[in-house]
Amino acid sequence: DTDSLFIQLKKDEGKEAAQNGMRIAGDLNNFWKDKISSEYGLASHLEIEFEKYYRKFIITPARGSESGAKKRYAGIVVESAAGGEKEKLEFVGLEFVRSDWTRLAKEFQVELYTKVFNEEDVDDWIREIVKKVKAGEYDEKLVYRKRLRKDVDDYTKNIPQHVKAARLLPESVGTVYYVITKRGPIPIELKHNDIDYNHYIEKQLKPITDSVLSLLDKSFDSIVESDQLSFF
């Protein structure tokens, strides 16, 4: 009972989105009521209801695929408010809502999608973020956080990064805070002045960028590499 159905309104229907959404939901419910009654002689208990209206909406492609991923989308939600309407950016199933992604990734994703929805150019902005990451200006935003689900000694195969970091600590912890260095994952309690910036660029910024810019026939690599080529 939590599955969603997305319907694209006609151009002029967005002005009264809530009314049109409720009308469409009513039409669908009546359709199934009549169909189930006429074909099976049963009362329909299927019911769909209007929930929200996205003024702009993106379903990101599944990684390694051109088709949209289930329950991975973002949009600008229009809500009723005192004196009119207000808009907010909403993420479902993307990195922004995951606790095990860095603050850099979350802030980057919010700003990137905001710019895309506002049809702003993002190329120079992305290049600037990459430069600042490499310069160490975002080090405090590169910390991963993940809970241990069992004792570190109970992990025997395919040991996750946060477990490797936890094993370096003198005492056990419930949640591990760590960064990726050129030596591997290191808890923030220990010296970590050799942060692997390429890891964060390739594993955080790049997948977030490509998930949305692929819809615009752009890629993270093409944007960053064009900046490097400009030096020659």
Results as ranks from 00 to 15, higher is better:
T60V: 14
E79Y: 05
I76F: 05
K132N: 15
R72L: 05
G84D: 11
Y54T: 07
K115R: 14
E85D: 12
E119Y: 10
L142N: 03
K35N: 13
A25H: 13
F117C: 02
E79K: 15
Y53Q: 02
I195S: 01
D227G: 14
T114F: 01
I159W: 13
I159S: 10
K150A: 12
E13W: 02
K134C: 03
V116C: 06
R103W: 02
F96P: 02
Q19D: 06
G26M: 06
E51N: 10
N30W: 06
L104C: 12
K106Q: 14
E120N: 11
L215T: 07
A165Q: 08
I129G: 08
Y197S: 04
F6K: 14
I126R: 02
P61Q: 02
D151H: 13
K141H: 06
A25Q: 11
D34G: 09
T181G: 06
E140W: 00
R23M: 12
V97S: 11
E95R: 13
E13R: 04
E128P: 00
F220E: 01
S44K: 01
H192R: 07
E85N: 12
Q109T: 08
I180F: 06
K52T: 15
V133E: 01
G83P: 02
K141E: 12
D194S: 02
A166T: 12
D154C: 05
V78S: 08
D12C: 09
F231Q: 09
Q8E: 12
H45A: 09
F220Y: 03
N29I: 08
F108I: 01
A18E: 15
L229S: 11
L9C: 08
I129N: 06
P207L: 03
V163H: 07
H192Q: 11
F231Y: 12
R55F: 04
G93D: 10
E95C: 09
P207F: 06
E49H: 09
Q161C: 05
D217A: 08
I186G: 06
F231I: 03
D210Q: 01
S219H: 02
I129E: 04
A74C: 13
K203S: 12
S37Y: 11
L190A: 09
E111I: 00
A25D: 09
A165P: 05
E119K: 11
T156H: 13
I48P: 00
S230W: 03
D153P: 01
V92T: 14
R127I: 09
G174N: 11
E16D: 12
A74H: 05
E16I: 07
R167S: 06
D194T: 07
Q161Y: 05
A166Y: 09
Q109I: 02
W32H: 13
G184N: 06
L112V: 08
W32F: 15
R149C: 06
S4P: 01
E140D: 14
A165W: 14
V173W: 01
I76C: 03
F220V: 02
F96Y: 15
S65P: 04
G75D: 11
T2V: 04
K70T: 08
D34M: 11
V97H: 07
L142H: 10
E47L: 05
T175L: 02
P61H: 01
V110I: 13
Y54E: 10
E140A: 14
I188G: 00
K141I: 00
R23I: 09
I126M: 01
